[in-house]
Amino acid sequence: MKFMDFFQREPKSTASVARDRLKIILAHERSFRDQPDFLPRLQQELLDVVRRYVEVEQDQVQVHLESRDTCSVLELNVTLPERDEP
């Protein structure tokens, strides 16, 4: 019976569920934390500039900042729409 199965499963303690959930959410939140505040604005302005020349969607311009030991690398990714061959 399905209903009984539910109760007979090896019970996982609620504390370990809490721990697992915390680990996932904090890993996610920390990855955003180290980014400088200006990054979203920079991304928007770059998008505006690109749009003066080509038609792109919001998510086709991506900005990432990666910190290395001695320097930081700002990576700009623009996915251009497929060209119609003349």
């Binding site: 303690s13 609620t14 504390a15 370990s16 721990r19 915390l22 904090l26």
Partner: peptide, 16 residues
């Protein structure tokens, strides 16, 4: 409550 798995343990909190 930590013993019966109802509360995060000190190690959990420290580890996180």
């Amino acid at each position: 409550r930590v013993d019966i798995g109802e509360m995060l343990s000190l190690e959990d909190v420290q580890d996180i």
